[in-house]
């Protein structure tokens, strides 16, 4: 149960302001989700580099010399940017999987939030404005991003229970609603080799899509499949390296508003989230249809 915001920029001139625009949108959704907040920002790390975002509840200890230790383990250069409880490690793209494995061995206390060429995920327990400030999201640029404010329903209020969930390279998913068959789907996905960090229904949605992509499905088909295989109420917003998609369940009770101009495509759980976007007065504003997949790619 939650608030969702999303922004996919078409106009390059807006890219330096992506983080600031998303932060503003996120804070307006505080009432829908005061428990925790998270944001996924997509921006190119540079040719041949991958970004791995890690989190620690004891960053002073876990992040100390982590770049050096990882560089030594990989035998490759590594850079690290620490932001509060999170750190973004940049490694050569072909070393991404090796780096993920090495990181979990180097520090028992860290969790990997995301990895890929463009994605960074920051999420924590607390009010959206505080979470955004801790990670200085407003200063970040990028091409597209998704934010989420969470009112936990049945799973715990923890960092790992916050959205977005990333279960594949450059992929993330946020959710508003409540799935009713996620335990069964999780069991089946586990049998197929997917791993889970939480008991959260949304993580199942994310893993379901990642699993479909892994087996060679297109993102469009993966989103279509949520309509038949996932039961319950959902509005999903998903991000990929170069794209941004939306799907609502066939009953479509959970709110969703979209706006499009020449400069951007924006998503909000409520219109409030969109009111400060440039040119919103003349934007095309509509609600996504039930059981219909929407997708934008650059």
């Amino acid at each position: 149960m939650c608030g969702i915001v999303g922004l996919f920029l078409k106009d390059k001139a807006l890219e330096p302001q992506l983080g600031a625009m998303l932060t503003d949108m996120l804070i307006t959704m505080t009432d829908r989700g005061p428990d925790s907040a998270g944001i996924a920002i997509y921006s190119d790390a540079g040719k041949g580099l991958a970004k791995i975002t890690v989190q620690s509840s004891d960053p002073g200890k876990d992040f100390k010399d982590l770049d050096g230790d990882l560089a030594a383990a990989l035998g490759q250069p590594v850079t690290m940017l620490i932001k509060d409880t999170h750190a973004v490690m940049e490694v050569p793209l072909d070393q991404m999987e090796a780096a993920r494995t090495a990181l979990t061995h180097l520090r028992a206390g860290i969790k990997i939030m995301s990895s890929g060429e463009t994605i960074e995920i920051f999420k924590e327990v607390g009010l959206p404005k505080d979470v955004a400030a801790r990670f200085q999201v407003a200063k970040m640029g990028g091409t597209h991003g998704i934010g989420h404010t969470r009112m936990a329903t049945e799973s715990a209020v923890t960092t790992m229970g916050a959205h977005p969930f990333s279960t594949g390279s450059d992929q993330c998913l946020v959710h508003n609603g409540s799935l009713s068959n996620h335990n069964g789907v999780r069991r089946e996905l586990r049998r197929q080799g997917m791993t889970f960090e939480t008991e959260n229904d949304t993580e199942v949605g994310a893993a379901f899509i990642s699993h479909k992509l892994k087996t060679g499905e297109t993102l469009g088909n993966a989103l279509e499949a949520t309509l038949t295989d996932l039961d319950g109420f959902f509005t999903f917003v998903v991000g990929t390296r170069n794209g941004f998609g939306v799907v609502r369940d066939p009953i479509a009770c959970k709110p969703a508003v979209m706006a499009e101009t020449d400069q951007y495509v924006a998503f909000g759980s409520e219109y409030r989230a969109l009111v400060n976007l440039p040119g919103i007065e003349t934007a095309r504003v509509w609600e996504p249809e039930p059981a219909t997949v929407y997708f934008w790619e650059r």
Partner: peptide, 14 residues
């Protein structure tokens, strides 16, 4: 069984 104009705790708050 559901209210006609809200679903879930985030809408209930409103």
């Amino acid at each position: 069984c559901r209210h006609p104009d809200w679903t879930g705790p985030d809408d209930l708050e409103i």
